[in-house]
Design a protein around this nucleic acid. Structure first.
Length: 417
DNA sequence: GTTGAGCGA
């Protein structure tokens, strides 16, 4: 079946969005940022308030059956879809603002990042909707969001993705440096952190790193291929003591411009069916720093995943052992770790942690076990907090918010609401 | 000071 593109008056592009009911007008909504507890029945009921819903789906991981945090709502009528987008976008579902977009199975616009802008120094009182309303004056917004912490508090920056680059340019020109709620905002093109970093640190270089080489690629092959871009002072494929290629190498150029051009044109190219990575060679110290940062990042992500499934238990009777703790909770799901905290002499601190394989299991266990009498006293059960989160929370309790004083500016005030 | 995630699993 052919996909037909419809060009809207404002330059928006809707290509016969899924659903299978209508190829020409958008009736299918993508609903993102769903809390993992949101069910299909709930989505259905919620969106049916606006008009008759044909089908809904919450996408789930095939193996774990856990919600992937997004789904689809299909209407029969495009006006209903439009109204739902307008009325329900950013409203709370199970405590979390949902983000609605027209479904578009073609990822090219999303991937290109065209029309995507970044806003910082946002007043904490500006929410998704206020941001959306302000920026919608410049064009059709595909997606918009204020970055928030786990409690929904604004982090003071956000994103707006327009459906075309011109709208983004207009928004940047007219709003960058303006006051919103008395704070002077920065509005600029969205640049991935990684790209920003490399733009700063990628000063001139002669030495080029190339990886994902096929087994058979030789020093001479590198010389030939890279030699097209300028004079090479050395080209080496790194090898094991037995001569086997390590699959990466270094090419040193006489001239930094040639090195840059080689990176520009060869990165991502395929040789012998292997897609080469070609980039500035890092010093060993730079490489190690990168690896360290990457490692820390992945640890953080792992911790985040774990978090929702981890419970903190206190008011435990001293007689409760690790095994007993596990036993108490095991009927609610698969326990992935458990521990009673003890002081150095081995005496129970009366608290501990129980982690489940999913947040759903954990919340069931919390509901059932909190306040339950065990041995001599009622258990206290709560979601486990990460150390940093806990510290931030305690600090917030004791510190007072002060109004931010901004320096005077001639820019006109942008008023929300 | 803060530069996501995102399409029918």
């Amino acid at each position: 079946m052919a996909q037909i593109q419809v060009q809207g008056q404002n330059g928006s592009v809707n290509n016969g969005a899924g659903g299978g009911n209508n190829q020409f007008v958008p009736t299918s909504l993508y609903v993102g940022d769903l809390d993992s507890s949101v069910t299909e029945a709930q989505l259905y009921d919620y969106f049916a308030h606006v008009g008759p819903v044909l089908t809904v789906r919450v996408c789930k991981d095939l193996s774990t059956r856990r919600s992937l945090g997004y789904g689809y709502v299909n209407y029969g009528n495009p006006q209903d879809a439009a109204r739902a987008l307008d009325l329900l976008n950013f409203t709370l579902l199970n405590g979390k603002p949902i983000r609605i977009m027209y479904s578009n199975r073609d990822p090219s616009l999303r991937k290109s990042g065209a029309g995507n802008i970044f806003i910082k120094n946002l007043d904490k009182g500006i929410d998704h909707k206020a941001l959306h309303d302000t920026f919608s004056a410049f064009g059709n917004i595909l997606s918009c969001k204020v970055a928030t912490d786990s409690s929904g508090q604004s982090k003071g920056y956000g994103f707006v993705q327009f459906d075309n680059e011109e709208s983004a340019q207009k928004a940047i020109e007219q709003l960058n440096g303006m006051l919103m709620n008395d704070k002077q905002v920065y509005v600029g093109p969205f640049v991935r952190k990684q790209e920003r970093d490399s733009a700063i640190s990628n000063v001139k270089f002669n030495n080029v790193y190339v990886k994902n080489l096929s087994e058979s690629t030789s020093d001479d092959d590198l010389k030939t291929i890279f030699g097209e871009f300028g004079l090479i002072t050395s080209a080496v494929v790194m090898r094991e003591p037995d001569g086997k290629s390590k699959g990466f190498g270094f090419v040193n150029f006489e001239n930094t411009d040639d090195a840059a051009r080689a990176v520009e044109s060869l990165n991502g190219k395929k040789f012998d069916d292997k897609e080469w990575y070609v980039g500035k060679a890092q010093k060993k110290s730079e490489r190690e720093l990168d690896l360290k940062l990457q490692f820390e990042q992945s640890m953080k992500e792992a911790a985040d995943k774990f978090q929702g499934a981890n419970l903190y238990v206190k008011n435990l009777d001293d007689s409760i052992s690790d095994e007993k703790l596990k036993e108490l909770f095991s009927q609610y799901g698969t326990i992935t770790s458990y521990k009673v905290m003890r002081d150095p002499s081995g005496i129970s601190k009366g608290s501990g942690f129980v982690a489940f394989s999913t947040p759903e299991e954990a919340s069931r266990a919390l509901a059932e076990m909190n306040g339950k009498m065990v041995v001599s006293k009622p258990l206290y059960v709560a979601p486990a907090q990460r150390k940093e989160d806990r510290r931030a929370r305690l600090q917030a309790q004791f510190s007072q918010m002060r109004p931010v004083t901004m320096s005077p500016s001639v820019a006109p005030r942008i008023q929300f609401r």
